[in-house]
Design a protein around this nucleic acid. Structure first.
Length: 482
RNA sequence: GCCCCUAUCGUCUAGUGGUUAGGACACCACUCUUUCAAGGUGGCGGCACGGGUUCAAAUCCCGUUGGGGGCACCA
């Protein structure tokens, strides 16, 4: 059996879309599973809509996901001559012909066909041009495109996801393969490249099913056996609409910036339209590679479920060890200016690790560490209004805080065991529930009603900060009572 | 308008003629507990509809409906 070669062919008109990312992943998984090659091809023939910034952003996203491509990336913009050569061959073999119709005229015809509720197909005006007529038009310098001649018949192919698919050629118009500016159109460049790059399996979105028939006709016209095709159903939003900006994040970079881990994205995307067959869902990349097969790809459109993605990210966050997790949280703290520079971190590394570890069970995204853990890094936080109402209005709370502050201040070892024992003893003396001290102190030191266990939190925060913050809270309570 | 794809809990899915239709997310309850999480236990909830084929249909066939995609000198 010949070598498995697949490709991902993004067009650099935007960031890497999650849909494209999933297609890339399925290609990559298939390649790895089959011991094949994963090729990257940039489809930038539309120079107006392509940019080099987007190209590097896309490469970066693919690498972030760990979808490393084999061989050098190919750029279609550098291969325009190849497409022209191929188009000449089709012309010579009478499989294609020059078309002098202007885009404006074609638009008009399409429009009136639509009005007449008829299928908008090219009327083959230029197919019947005589040699002399063509000479005449050429002499006048009329721009000409090249159209592929679609013969009568029917094309059938076996899709690896959808099974046998067929299409009448009467449904396909003579499509343009080379624009009048000499640049190949998508369908043509795609086929030429897939031929040249010896692509064995084309795995792409469902939206290309109708292109597949055109492309198979091109393969046949070139006398080349077409590759295998597998079309993946498109990802939808929860309203079963196309994944668009309105839905929220659509590019991989946005998920990265929100604090999703690449391993989460890979696992989650893999499960969108594919399942291993058993009940496992948390699957490391290695397992995905081992288990992946196109036969198991579902043929119906999956919905992108953000809640499940969050859950899964939490699972992956909790899989990381102290050091790894801290490493990943640091960029987010830096971005929010909660820690200053790499140098300063290195001194605080041990403390930082403790903070991260305290928060980790409550975090689903790396950005959660910033929001839930803010008070560890700065005094600049407000008390949650609702909680103030409840906790700072407890009877004699200012007095209690004062006494607790005094006792905690005199503690020899400021550790969680001592802190807890002291607080509970004090509550006993006062004959109140420990919770009636614990919660107000929580608000005092963090401003929040939620968070890690109070005593470990206070220990990590340190004596100085804690006493300071209790003072601040007492003042606040006294002001409340005025 | 024409062509194509598609249909199991709200969502992701397992299931390939005979299952009490399984799992996960979400949701609810209970539990643990200083809060919130995390964890544990339990629960709610599904074969779109109508015809066939068959002893037997979620599973095969046809239609309807719903959803998605495509019909460019975009990719």
């Amino acid at each position: 059996m010949s070598e498995v070669r697949v490709r991902i062919a993004p067009s650099p008109s935007g960031y890497l879309h999650v849909g494209t990312a999933r297609t890339a992943l399925f290609n990559w998984l298939f390649a790895k599973n089959q011991n094949g090659k994963f090729i990257l091809r940039i489809e930038d023939t539309d120079s107006a809509r392509s940019s080099s910034e987007m190209i590097s952003a896309i490469l970066e996203s693919l690498q972030w996901l760990g979808l490393q491509w084999d061989e050098q990336p190919y750029h279609q913009s550098a291969r325009l001559d190849i497409y022209r050569d191929y188009s000449q061959k089709l012309l010579k073999d009478n499989k294609a012909y020059y078309c002098y119709c202007s885009p404006e005229l074609l638009d008009k015809k399409r429009e009136s066909a639509k009005q007449a509720k008829k299928a908008p197909r090219y009327d083959r005006t230029c197919l019947s041009l005589t040699e002399e007529e063509r000479e005449e038009l050429n002499k006048k310098g009329m721009p000409k495109a090249i159209r592929f001649f679609v013969s009568l018949g029917k094309t059938v192919y076996h899709d690896l996801v959808h099974g046998d698919l067929e299409r009448e050629h009467s449904e396909i118009e003579d499509f343009i393969i080379l624009r009048s500016d000499g640049v190949a159109t998508y369908n043509f460049a795609c086929v030429v490249d897939d031929v040249e790059m010896r692509i064995s399996h084309i795995i792409r979105g469902d939206d290309h099913i109708s292109n597949t028939f055109k492309q198979i006709l091109l393969y046949q016209a070139l006398g080349i056996e077409p590759p295998q095709f597998a079309h993946l159903p498109l990802i939808l939003t929860k309203n079963r609409a196309k994944l668009s900006k309105r839905f929220g994040a659509v590019s991989v970079t946005e998920y990265r910036d929100e604090g999703y881990l690449p391993e989460t994205m890979v696992n989650f995307l893999a499960l969108l339209g594919w399942a291993p067959g058993d009940d496992r869902e948390i699957l490391p990349k290695k397992e995905l590679v081992r288990l992946f097969s196109l036969e198991k790809v579902s043929s119906a459109n999956p919905v992108f479920d953000l809640e499940k993605l969050e859950w899964m990210n939490g699972e992956y966050i909790r899989k990381l060890n102290k050091e790894e997790l801290t490493e990943r949280v640091i960029p987010f703290l830096l971005k929010e200016n909660l820690i200053s520079s790499e140098e300063e971190i290195s001194g605080k590394r041990e403390w930082l690790t403790k903070v991260v570890w305290l928060l980790r069970e409550r975090c689903h995204k790396l950005t959660d560490f910033v929001h839930l853990g803010r008070f560890f890094f700065t005094d600049n936080f407000e008390y949650d209004a609702e909680v103030v109402k409840k906790q700072f209005t407890i009877e004699n709370i200012a007095t209690h805080l004062q006494e607790l502050q005094k006792r905690w201040g005199e503690l020899k070892d400021f550790n969680k065991e001592n802190l807890e024992k002291l607080l509970r003893d004090f509550a006993g003396e006062l004959n109140i529930k420990p919770a009636n001290l614990i919660h107000p102190v929580r608000v005092a030191v963090s401003g929040l009603s939620v968070g890690p266990g109070l005593f470990e939190m206070v220990e990590v925060l340190g004596r100085e900060k804690v006493l300071e913050r209790i003072t601040r809270a007492i003042k606040y309570v006294n002001r409340l009572n005025l």
